[in-house]
Deep mutational scan, measured.
Amino acid sequence: MGFKLLSKLLVYLTASIMAIASPLAFSVDSSGEYPTVSEIPVGEVRLYQIADGVWSHIATQSFDGAVYPSNGLIVRDGDELLLIDTAWGAKNTAALLAEIEKQIGLPVTRAVSTHFHDDRVGGVDVLRAAGVATYASPSTRRLAEVEGNEIPTHSLEGLSSSGDAVRFGPVELFYPGAAHSTDNLIVYVPSASVLYGGCAIYELSRTSAGNVADADLAEWPTSIERIQQHYPEAQFVIPGHGLPGGLDLLKHTTNVVKAHTNRSVVE
């Protein structure tokens, strides 16, 4: 069995187990497998329904001669939608809004960016022009300005110390501490036991640490421990890039980060 097929099978099995364990909360999309990078042309966006009122959005972007996937989250909030992270750029984010209108038909009224990198804030200006209120932590807003990236308009308070959590509509926002970046936030959907790890969490097929220019490698494993301790009931975990899975993604990420750190020390 090929690795790609095995990865998709694991996603399907995880979703099936969740649907059985929580039949009222989960209505997993039966329309197909989780979209992969090879299936999404740059400039297009796919939506994948995880649970009743919960979707991931998947886009792709060219970077350094390669094409990478990027995940975000959409959560229903009454007759409105909360968006977590842009679709990595203005063109993708405009396509995301169009796809949401086509498939869901509810307005996106608020959006949260989970850290300051372009795959999370690139497209904020498109959201703002569409009347979406954009939010991020003060740290993310400051770092985005320093980096020359787009800056969300509103500040999220109460997320300055490791372990801080605040309720934001249908989700809980959690600051686990520094990891992929010093400002990275985690998003949890309690009604569906869905954990969105953003770039602080890796997919299972990833074996290298990737972009760690703004990471705190020493603190990252401790931050992941905080996530595990705060959300032990999480059933569906979405990484910032690639295929979702279960809580095993947290341990896998820790292993990859520690291996990278150990290699760096040896070198």
Rank of each mutant, 00 (worst) to 15 (best):
S70G: 08
I100K: 00
G122Q: 03
E39A: 09
S70P: 02
V45L: 06
E39W: 05
V146K: 14
Y202K: 14
T140Q: 01
G177F: 04
A94R: 13
G53Y: 03
W220P: 06
G72A: 07
K8F: 15
T254Q: 05
L249D: 03
G72M: 07
V28R: 06
G65S: 08
E39T: 03
C199S: 02
A59Q: 15
G78H: 04
A59P: 10
V187I: 14
T60E: 09
V11D: 04
L185D: 01
F26T: 03
G163K: 07
P152Q: 14
E147N: 15
D125K: 11
W88T: 01
L10M: 15
L83K: 00
R128C: 00
V194A: 13
P138M: 15
L204S: 12
L5V: 11
G89W: 02
G78F: 09
V132E: 02
A129K: 00
R141Q: 04
V126D: 13
I20W: 14
E147A: 11
P170K: 12
I50N: 03
E203W: 04
K91W: 12
I74W: 01
E219H: 09
T222V: 09
P152T: 15
A94W: 12
G43W: 06
D29G: 07
I74F: 04
H241T: 01
V28L: 05
Y196V: 08
R226I: 12
I20P: 14
S264N: 15
S161E: 11
V146Y: 06
L9K: 02
I17A: 03
H230F: 15
D79E: 13
T14V: 09
T140Y: 06
P232Q: 13
L243A: 08
Q49W: 12
L185N: 13
A129I: 13
Y202R: 11
Q235I: 15
R206Q: 08
V108L: 03
A21F: 10
G177R: 00
Q49N: 06
A95D: 10
S22N: 08
V146M: 13
R46N: 13
V212E: 07
H241I: 01
A129Q: 06
I100L: 12
A90V: 12
T261N: 13
A111P: 00
E44L: 09
T93Q: 12
A21R: 10
A133P: 05
D64R: 06
E33T: 04
A90N: 04
T93E: 05
L73I: 10
A144C: 04
H154P: 02
V257A: 08
S22D: 10
I151R: 12
P41R: 06
A259M: 01
G122A: 06
E219L: 08
K258Y: 00
R46K: 02
A111W: 03
F116E: 02
I17W: 03
L47C: 04
V189N: 06
Q103W: 09
R142S: 05
P190A: 12
V132H: 15
G242R: 07
N184V: 13
S223K: 12
V146D: 03
L5P: 07
Y48L: 05
L243G: 12
A51W: 10
S264G: 10
G158I: 15
V189R: 03
L156S: 03
A87W: 00
Y135N: 15
S70F: 11
V171S: 04
D29H: 13
Y68N: 05
V189G: 11
G246D: 13
N71D: 07
S16L: 08
E39Y: 13
T114N: 00
N211C: 12
T207P: 03
P170M: 01
L13T: 06
A234R: 13
I84G: 05
L24E: 08
S7Y: 05
G240C: 01
V166D: 06
A87K: 00
L82D: 11
G53E: 09
G148C: 10
R120P: 02
D79C: 13
P69R: 07
I151G: 10
D125G: 12
R142K: 07
